[in-house]
């Protein structure tokens, strides 16, 4: 059993990593991961913020624990192919934990999120963050920061979309065939296009 850890990352690298995760490689609008909960929870801005907080928490913890599982268990034992199932195990446990925690301490938010909290489990965004950490060889601190930043990017996208959606539902004068979900999809596409403006942005740090 031999342990091989990635090299440590400087503070500048970590900062530009965070910016990249939030804007340039935004999980929903650029990488298109995690869209089901994105469309499901963005009816009201308050629930969107709550969902974003839950996702940040889960992503950060998932990034940390899956990093540890990879470098302490899977790689030394030559079990790289078990990556997907092991990470899903970790993420499922974490989401159960978050659910229990929320039910006890934030029952109103728990009621509001409803079915979407367990949906974070099968949310490809969380698994995507965990796997990207490994593929890009980030250090432990880098992984955690990447997880938090991905969560922040998700929250940013979902809160923006929730506000747009609230206005669309309330005031927009929409052709009958586009009312409801179609116009929301188009709005999301336009939002994704606007985030393309960040592509290629790299901070010289």
């Amino acid at each position: 059993m031999s342990f091989a850890f990635p090299e440590a990352m400087g503070i500048g690298e970590i900062f530009s990593l965070a910016v990249a995760a939030i804007l340039v490689n935004n999980y929903i609008l650029v990488q298109f991961l995690g869209c089901c909960s994105f469309f499901g929870v963005s009816k009201k801005t308050d629930t969107a913020v709550g969902m974003g907080m839950a996702v940040i928490f889960v992503m950060a913890l998932a990034a940390a624990v899956s990093w540890a599982v990879w470098y302490f268990i899977l790689e030394p034992l030559g079990l790289q192919y078990m990556r997907t199932i092991a990470f899903i195990l970790v993420i499922a446990t974490l989401v159960q934990f978050v659910e229990m925690f929320m039910k006890k301490s934030m029952p109103a938010l728990y009621q509001a999120l409803g079915i979407f909290l367990p949906l974070i489990t099968t949310n490809c965004a969380v698994l995507g963050a965990a796997i990207t950490n490994i593929d890009s060889g980030y250090s432990f601190i880098g992984s955690v920061v990447y997880g938090v930043a991905s969560g922040i990017g998700y929250t940013l996208a979902i809160v923006i979309f929730a506000s747009i959606r609230e206005r669309l539902d309330a005031t927009a004068d929409c052709p009958k065939c586009f009312e409801g979900f179609p116009i929301q999809l188009i709005a999301a596409a336009l939002l994704a296009m606007s985030f393309m403006g960040f592509s290629g942005l790299s901070l010289p740090l």
Partner: peptide, 14 residues
């Protein structure tokens, strides 16, 4: 054996 054991132990711990 490594695969089965590691996953089982992780599952149990969680």
């Amino acid at each position: 054996i490594y695969a089965a054991a590691s996953l089982s132990i992780m599952g149990l711990l969680f």
